[in-house]
Simulated assay, not measured.
Amino acid sequence: MPSEPSPAADPSGPGASYSRGTVDLLGLVAYGELCAFERLAEDARTSPSLADKVQIAAMAAGEFGHFELVRDRLSALGVDAMEAMAPFRTPFDTFHRLTAPRSWLEGLVKTFVGDGFAADFYREVAAYVDADTRACVHTVLANEAQSDYIVARVRAGIAEDPTVAGRLALWGRRLVGEALSQAQRVAADRDDLTGLLAGTVDRPGMDLAAISRMFSRLVEAHTARMDLLGLAS
């Protein structure tokens, strides 16, 4: 079956804002995956055991593979991935600078909680793009095996030293707070991206009640992730 027409094909037509928003979403996801690869590669270097090093290195390789999938989707739309990612370097890099883990366990929680919160938001936005782009986003955000490993490893760490639970719980809350702050910055700077949710003249989106329900879903999913880790949200 042939791919759907490129949403970025007519930058001056009536769907121009939608096209730019779609590219923004892919650029956001691509840079997020690239950052995840870099972080996990560093976490692999500091892993406490050889088995952990292998597991984290495999996760890092998977994230780079995801980056390549998004890059290929952007290429199919006639868009250079470097240009699509460029607007998101500052907010992402700021977030990671403000949330640099102080321990290996904090790094795992950041991957599970911080990246998980972002992934939930990307899936919400992806509901309003074309089917091929939506499938790409959902594919790169599917990390069930990675999640199982992190949950088991963090719970084991808490069992070994129960005193870390309180610190990790505070860390999880801080991660989401910083993520929301940077998301607001992106939303303020990228009208076309937020327009995917709000809708345009020719494309329906969410009303205020639906947006409120979306944020409720994001918070509920965050709480569920913290519970899986054995941490208070």
Rank of each mutant, 00 (worst) to 15 (best):
N143V: 11
P162G: 06
A118I: 06
N143M: 03
R167E: 15
G116E: 02
L218P: 00
E42H: 13
A9F: 04
V151R: 07
R173Q: 13
A232P: 10
D191G: 05
S216A: 15
A165K: 06
M214N: 15
G21V: 00
V176W: 05
A100V: 02
V109F: 04
F92D: 12
S216N: 04
R190V: 02
D43H: 07
H66K: 02
G199Q: 00
D191V: 06
T90V: 15
A61S: 09
R73A: 11
F88V: 06
A36L: 12
A198S: 07
M206Y: 10
V113E: 08
T133R: 06
I150H: 04
I158Y: 06
G205R: 08
A60P: 04
A30W: 07
R225Q: 15
L108W: 04
G27K: 05
A221Q: 10
L25R: 01
E124Q: 12
R217Y: 07
E106G: 11
G195R: 01
A86R: 13
T200F: 08
L168T: 05
D10I: 08
D202W: 13
G13Q: 02
L208D: 14
A61N: 12
R173V: 13
M206W: 14
V70P: 04
L69P: 06
T94M: 12
G205S: 08
A30D: 11
A81L: 07
P91Q: 00
L98A: 13
E38I: 12
A135R: 05
A118M: 10
M85T: 09
Y18D: 03
A221M: 12
D115I: 10
S49V: 14
D192K: 01
V151I: 10
A135K: 02
A86H: 13
D120W: 00
A169P: 03
Q146W: 15
L25P: 09
A159D: 10
V29C: 14
R20L: 13
I150N: 04
G114A: 09
S47K: 08
G13I: 03
L228A: 13
M82R: 15
L77D: 09
L218H: 07
D52Y: 01
L208E: 09
V29I: 11
T223V: 15
G32C: 09
I56L: 01
Y31Q: 13
T99Y: 03
V113N: 01
G205L: 10
G199F: 14
Y128T: 08
F215N: 05
V201K: 09
V113W: 08
V154R: 02
T22L: 00
P162D: 04
G27A: 10
A209N: 00
R185S: 12
I158D: 02
M85I: 13
A76T: 05
Y122F: 15
V109Q: 00
E160W: 11
E38Q: 09
Y31D: 01
A16K: 05
D52V: 03
V23Q: 03
G78F: 00
